[in-house]
Design a protein around this nucleic acid. Sequence first.
DNA 1: ATGCAAAATTCTGAATGCAGGATTATGATA
DNA 2: TATCATAATCCTGCATTCAGAATTTTGCAT
Lengths: 230, 230
Amino acid sequence: MDSKSNTPATREASSEAVRIERPTLHNVVITRVRDMIIEGKLPVGGRIHEGQLGQQLGISRTPLREALKVLASEGLVELIPGRGAIVRKLSQKDVQDMLSVLSHLESMAGPLICQNVTAEDLQKIRQIHDEMLEFYEVRDRLRYFKLNQQIHSLLIALTGNESLRLVHGILLTRMKRIRYIGDRTEQSWLDAIHDHEEMLHALEARDGARLSAALAHHLEETWERVKSAI
Amino acid sequence: MDSKSNTPATREASSEAVRIERPTLHNVVITRVRDMIIEGKLPVGGRIHEGQLGQQLGISRTPLREALKVLASEGLVELIPGRGAIVRKLSQKDVQDMLSVLSHLESMAGPLICQNVTAEDLQKIRQIHDEMLEFYEVRDRLRYFKLNQQIHSLLIALTGNESLRLVHGILLTRMKRIRYIGDRTEQSWLDAIHDHEEMLHALEARDGARLSAALAHHLEETWERVKSAI
DNA sequence: ATGCAAAATTCTGAATGCAGGATTATGATA
DNA sequence: TATCATAATCCTGCATTCAGAATTTTGCAT
């Protein structure tokens, strides 16, 4: 779920000490409300009532409003002046367009990833993948989903291209809701896992083109999985 | 300068009436502060003093803070918890990475644009282009720059892909500051104009691949122009 | 004069207050 | 009973206020 941290990763390579993480309230709220949208707790097309939601979260309207502005800039929420925020509804075309952009971004990413990936990176990804499989075995969809997203985010991060990470993260976030509710028959679930395994193989072979192809194929299947859910 | 409006363009094709534009203060402030950063009125690396800037703009801290959150999510400023906002500094690698992503996005855009462009669109772009040339004649850099950006934004909008427009807009915005201060010798300026003319020709010929190539070439030259300014 | 510690000040983060527009409820008339 | 106008309520947008953290200043000791 860390596909996009709100303070861009401009970490000083010089200082040894790890920057203390002091989460500000509005940052927490951004993540929280984002998750609520993704998990469908805030219905698509529904209005977000500042006072009500604020009370529900136990905070004042101020940090909530700040969070809504950010979510609007990510395209998750629509802000109508004088009338508040509504959860943005995505059309089929919206989703297709997003997948199309994501596909291009990932095809760009493939070679870069293979160029940069270290043995430790590979091991880490393999580890998350295996963990994900365990959740698949017990059909724990939510946890499976979260690890799945994590792998994709990690891969893009391996390109070392911060801007790519940023824009990819934004689109991935926009897609999350759809992906989460998307059809998951046994078969399509299995297909997705096979895609992931092919991705890992390409990665291990450091074959950029193959990785790009695998990522693209995965997105095509994603469309098949989600199109009925819109 | 309208590369990225803050309420995503979800206009109802059904309603004939044009949605009345009621600008909220924080939206105005977002644009305003963004421009201040781009034009260098807020120095790179410098801290943004909420009280001071707010007073200077004649507004309270509330809408200013909301604007800063959005600008942070665009990557223009960095928010350090407990210590406020600073104008983000871009390294050479940052800029190269951005250009690289932009290049991929534009190469994706080329065919789509040529596929969608209407005669009116063409005329409109040609018109802006000519207007831009007039500002070139009198060496009015700022106005030239603004029309230049407008053409690029318009082109991407012609793809009809809202997500593409969003992410392209974010990166373009991030680049603006650099582009604005970038080296402009007579020669490089002339080169840029020739690039634009080639783009227009490709567009008129509805030749997607040629347009993509022209856009890519333009970005390569952009790098040459700006690299010394970082 | 310099370095350190404590106090004072300043600034951010968040809550509350207030004004104006939007929505809903009420009631009168056809 | 339906429709429209008016009034009451609610909600957003923004300003102000308050608390706590960060910074600067001051004073003391070396």
